[in-house]
Design a protein around this nucleic acid. Structure first.
Lengths: 245, 245
DNA sequence: CCGGGCGGTTGACATGGATCAAAGCGCGCC
DNA sequence: GGCGCGCTTTGATCCATGTCAACCGCCCGG
């Protein structure tokens, strides 16, 4: 049922991974890190468009993104679906599966990607023996909840321009954290996927990009984005409709 | 800064709590339960309108609701806020604080309520020693994430009627799980709070209630709700705008 | 028992974003 | 390297929901 996925049985070491400051082991000492190395046995490569897991799949592992870009997608029983997040290197996929032992969303690679496979039972076992790991794992889950509340706020009370500004600033900040440019990047997702995530139609996303460009906030060329006025975008996000006061 | 809150230093035992099938200890054996009793030292009573914690407060404990009804509320930097959830007996409050050691939302009692105070460091310690507790706590957090994704889907792609139908059915189901009527209950929150949660204005909530009443789906009298046609409400939720095909 | 205020309802109107439609372009596949 | 499809842009129109306003009525306190 799943598309074929190449499985690389490579020995992976968190202790030597250059994402360790973003990923599960963040903040652990070097010797603590070496304890972690027994957690990750395998990696998995995915090509663009392939699913890492799908809603309904049995849950067994979490996945840490080593490279690439993903979206997660949730669906209603009546066939509508929505992008629930975009994930990049160092972020964790699959947490949704813990609660029901079954995945509740699809994770799809938006470009050729590689993930570390973290067997969940192993993670639980290790985090019982190893307090800093337990603590950090809890933090990761808690932050995911806080992030989701932020998206709920965006979806429930922001206007189209504010949503897109918030989206761009969020991407910018995450790229910065990974050592990339804060102001210039390639969007890995389509206008439709952005719209789905932001609760807008693709036409609205496109129009809003054009509007931002006219206003000199960004320079848009297809998927290539250059933010030319970060404070300006912040101001767009901050303004409360204005008409309501 | 906080409103005065009465602290009851009562010995509380999960093992004899009639909410144990809904709360943290769900699914544990009786002897396992007794290990849990050392987790909860105190309870806290809150009157209607009081805050259990506020955004920015230092995070120290989780709270299990023994009785009553709460809302949580998140805010943007520019002053807008939104209800992020309604919580009832057996549910856990405060998970948002784990990630940053600081609470990221306000929790407000919507009626006189009582909570069990669960010191978080104690919970981590116990769940290291006690695998089923660890496992269940992870499940609770994961389910919260899945729930939030459901709300995001609602906010991003449902119409007003679908949102309100989903809201009523969700309440109904949660009341059922607590042994109350699935079809008749008192809303603890105002139309404005419902609207905030659902990304609608209070007038829209009110109008939609009236519409449901005209259609014979519910009988509404202020905060008193009687669902007269549960399958009908389900159908409202399921229909996909219809115009889009 | 009465009065005031808050929460709720309803109506009229405004509007942001959806929808429908059509054309351009750019990227990937062969 | 060229072709075709999918993504994007842009325009015209429509509609769901927001906004503004007025009134109602329940509940609480005096």
């Amino acid at each position: 049922m799943n598309a074929p996925i190449s499985l690389a049985h490579l020995k992976t070491a968190c202790s030597s991974c250059n994402l360790r400051e973003l990923c599960l082991p963040v903040g652990l000492s070097h010797e603590q890190l070496e304890t972690l190395d027994e957690l990750v046995y395998t990696r998995k490569r995915l090509k663009r468009g392939e699913s890492l897991f799908r809603s309904g799949d049995e849950f067994q592992s979490l996945y840490a993104i080593r490279s690439g870009f993903f979206k997660t997608r949730v669906a209603t029983s009546d066939g509508r679906d929505q992008v629930s997040g975009f994930q990049m290197a160092g972020e964790l996929l699959g947490i949704d599966g813990i609660g029901t032992d079954t995945h509740n969303c699809d994770a799809v690679a938006l470009e050729d990607s590689e993930v570390c496979v973290i067997p969940y039972s192993k993670l639980e076992e290790l985090s019982r023996r190893f307090e800093p790991l337990q603590h950090h794992f809890h933090k990761v889950m808690s932050r995911e909840i806080v992030r989701d509340h932020g998206v709920m706020l965006l979806l429930g009370s922001m206007r189209a321009e504010e949503r897109l500004a918030a989206f761009l600033l969020n991407l910018s900040q995450r790229f910065t954290a990974r050592g990339y440019s804060a102001s210039e990047f390639i969007l890995r997702m389509t206008r439709e996927e952005i719209g789905s995530y932001l609760g807008l139609k693709l036409e609205t996303v496109s129009r809003t990009f054009s509007k931002f460009q006219d206003e000199g906030l960004v320079s848009v060329q297809q998927k290539h984005i250059r933010i030319t006025d970060i404070p300006g975008l912040r101001k767009v996000m901050g303004q409360t409709g204005a008409s309501s006061c």
